[in-house]
């Protein structure tokens, strides 16, 4: 599984950080998300999928390898 994060589209909702805190974090000053783990292990899939579905800016894409 590979995560693609579009920081230009990110609006800093922090949803992904709540859904998958070991995969996503966000900058404190502008809230823009960044990846802690670009290729998370399979057991993170449901959390990462939730982050993808809930992102209000559609900034997250999960690619299955």
């Amino acid at each position: 599984m590979r995560i693609e994060l579009d920081q230009d589209a990110c609006v800093g909702s922090g949803n992904c950080v709540v859904s998958a805190p070991d995969v996503f974090d966000q900058r404190d000053d502008d809230g823009i998300a960044f990846l802690l783990e670009e290729n998370p292990s399979a057991e993170r899939e449901s959390a990462v999928k939730e982050a993808e579905a809930m992102c209000p800016a559609l900034a997250i894409r999960v690619h299955k390898k």
Binding site: G12, G14, V18, Q26, R27, D28, D29, D30, G31
Partner: peptide, 11 residues
């Protein structure tokens, strides 16, 4: 604004 970590705690 400008304090995203703190905002998450308050959320």
């Amino acid at each position: 604004a400008g304090m995203f970590k703190a905002m998450n705690w308050w959320r």
